[in-house]
């Protein structure tokens, strides 16, 4: 893969990678930093890229590795960061909810409940949920990205979804069917 091909790739995927990173880290600057570090790592290792892999799998593996390690370091200071970003996100979302009836977005207050619910989901399951719902990846690709079995992907997703469903129900979202 030459430099120009990689640059095209980076441009194409930056947005999707950012969305996953943001859902994992809950912080815009950290998400940008993670995407940049992941792409730089891939760029440095582009010679070892094998076409046996889907490009997206390769990039997502690098991104999740960076994000997960960031979360490891953050363990102790999670509370501080979340308090800051939740307030930030609520204000960013505000314009979207002013056009009532036009948008289907949930009110900001409920979104905060959902964010808290998401934080209750164990790290590995949260990562899989982010990949699945931000980019609609299938079980096999998720398994390959995290180096785990397809069955583990299924059980982790089911666990994460159950926690989220309970939270949605409790928050009056009626997320169950």
């Amino acid at each position: 893969m030459d430099e120009r091909a990689f640059a095209r790739l980076a441009e194409e995927y930056a947005g999707r990678l950012y969305a996953v990173a943001y859902r994992m880290l809950g912080h815009r600057a950290d998400a940008e930093d993670a995407v940049q570090r992941a792409l730089l790592k891939c760029y440095a290792a582009r010679a070892s890229y094998s076409p046996r892999w889907a490009v997206s799998t390769w990039l997502y593996r690098a991104l999740t590795n960076v994000c997960i390690d960031e979360l490891r370091r953050r363990r102790v200071r999670t509370d501080v960061i979340d308090a800051g970003t939740e307030a930030g996100e609520a204000s960013e979302r505000a314009p979207a909810r002013s056009g009532r009836g036009v948008t289907t977005a949930a009110p900001a207050v409920e979104r905060l409940d959902l964010r808290r619910a998401l934080e209750r989901v164990p790290r590995e399951a949260r990562l899989l949920l982010s990949l699945r719902y931000v980019d609609g990846l299938d079980y096999r690709e998720l398994a390959k990205i995290r180096g785990i079995s397809v069955n583990t992907v299924k059980s982790q997703l089911a666990r994460g979804k159950a926690i989220m469903r309970d939270a949605l129900r409790a928050g009056g979202h009626d997320g169950s069917n």
Binding site: E11, A19, R28, Y133, G175
Partner: peptide, 19 residues
Amino acid sequence: RTDDTLREIFAVTAPPTLS
């Protein structure tokens, strides 16, 4: 419906100058 709700919650737009 949980899937739909989750998909909606997870939607994020990247800043335009990121790439």
